[in-house]
Computed example of a mutant assay.
Amino acid sequence: MLAVSDEVRSEIGDDEADRLLGGAHAPDSYECTSCRTPGDSLQEPTSTVLFVGEETAVLAFAHARCIPSQVVPVSEEQLVGAVRSISQAQADGPAPAAPVTAPAIPGQAAPSPAPSATQPTAPGQAAILGITCGLVLHGGTGHASIVVEPTGPVGRPGNTSGTDEFLDLLQDAGFQPVTDLDKTPDQLSGWSVLVAMGKLHAILQPAAAGGSTGWWQAHQPLQVTDAWRFAANQLTEVTMYAVPAGMVGRQPREDLLRQALERAVALGQVVGASLPLAGT
């Protein structure tokens, strides 16, 4: 019932992977690293998730229905803190999961000191991807939504002119222009939104070698409201909208967020897609 992906196997080695699959080092019971509820590797499909820092690695387990077996790069500080927590909690029951983040893709998104990602543009400049979460009504139904807005122009890799190509890049990836906020965008295959332990961790995109990899990651997991999380779980998807720099801004209320999005839609400056929910 245990799944060990090829990327996890390549990190831990064939011998250790075979021992895990043989049941030697896999716990019968565990706390899912995604949804934080108990799991049983003898009774239900289980994924191995390897959190890798600069010098430390921690193997965790998750329900296969929550997330697939994968390698998740995290900062060494996060991983050391997780190991400390695991050591403290081992006497009381299943070990808590390490924080979930996702790797960055050079030229598309990279870690930054804020809960955002950076995209180099002109020399000496970097655009930070701001993330705003809120419920957006689609025909009377509240959809968990994410609005992605950079702080400056985002260019293609190698572009040093400062020309903003953010929406073009996303349309190349399959996002579609939004013309009506009341209509739910089509689902984009291969992309997903990772929510773990009740917080937003990453937006994932298809990896060239198969599976998923990080497009955006939170430097620190972002807290979302119960209503947002409930809507995401109920519909098993999240709507992602993207706008150019300065188009929407950080709106303090959902009604103001919608008004700003509607203005951007009227100007033809919004692309979007529905992304499946990974985790809970």
Rank of each mutant, 00 (worst) to 15 (best):
A110D: 13
G142R: 07
A109R: 02
A110K: 07
T132N: 13
L129F: 15
L135Q: 06
A114H: 12
G124L: 05
A114F: 12
D180Q: 02
P96S: 04
C133R: 05
G134W: 01
D168Q: 15
Q119P: 00
V178S: 06
T132S: 15
H138A: 14
P185G: 11
L137S: 15
G158P: 06
A117E: 07
T163C: 09
V136N: 04
I131G: 01
A98M: 01
D172K: 12
Q88M: 10
G158N: 05
T163I: 12
G107T: 09
Q171P: 04
A89I: 09
D164N: 14
A173Q: 14
I105A: 12
D186Y: 06
P150A: 07
T179S: 13
D164H: 06
T132W: 03
L169I: 15
A173L: 13
D186C: 07
Q187C: 09
V148C: 11
A144C: 06
D182M: 03
P153Q: 05
L137R: 15
A98I: 01
A104K: 02
G134E: 11
L188V: 12
T163P: 03
V154F: 00
A117W: 03
G140V: 00
T121D: 08
S145V: 03
Q108E: 14
A91V: 14
Q171L: 03
T184H: 05
A144R: 00
I105L: 14
S87P: 04
D180R: 01
L167Q: 10
Q176H: 11
A117Y: 04
P123S: 09
V178A: 11
P177N: 10
S85W: 07
P103V: 01
T151V: 07
T179V: 12
A102V: 07
L169C: 10
T101R: 04
P177M: 10
R156I: 08
S161V: 08
G124W: 06
P150M: 02
L181C: 05
P94M: 10
A95S: 14
V154D: 01
A173R: 14
A97Y: 01
L181A: 08
P106R: 10
G140I: 01
S145I: 01
D172T: 13
P177G: 12
A127I: 04
T101P: 02
Q187D: 13
R156S: 09
G124S: 10
D186I: 05
G152W: 04
A102P: 06
L167N: 10
G130F: 03
V154A: 11
T101S: 13
L135G: 09
A104S: 14
G139E: 03
F175E: 00
T163M: 10
V147P: 07
L188W: 01
T160R: 08
L181P: 01
L188H: 05
A104C: 10
P99E: 11
D182Q: 13
A109D: 13
S85V: 11
P153K: 09
G140P: 00
E149P: 11
S112W: 05
P150L: 03
V100H: 04
G174I: 02
I131H: 07
T163R: 14
D164R: 09
T141I: 11
L188F: 06
A122M: 07
F166S: 07
G139P: 09
A114G: 09
K183P: 04
V148T: 08
T118V: 13
V178I: 13
P94Q: 12
Q187H: 08
A117N: 08
P177S: 13
P99H: 05
A144N: 06
E149M: 04
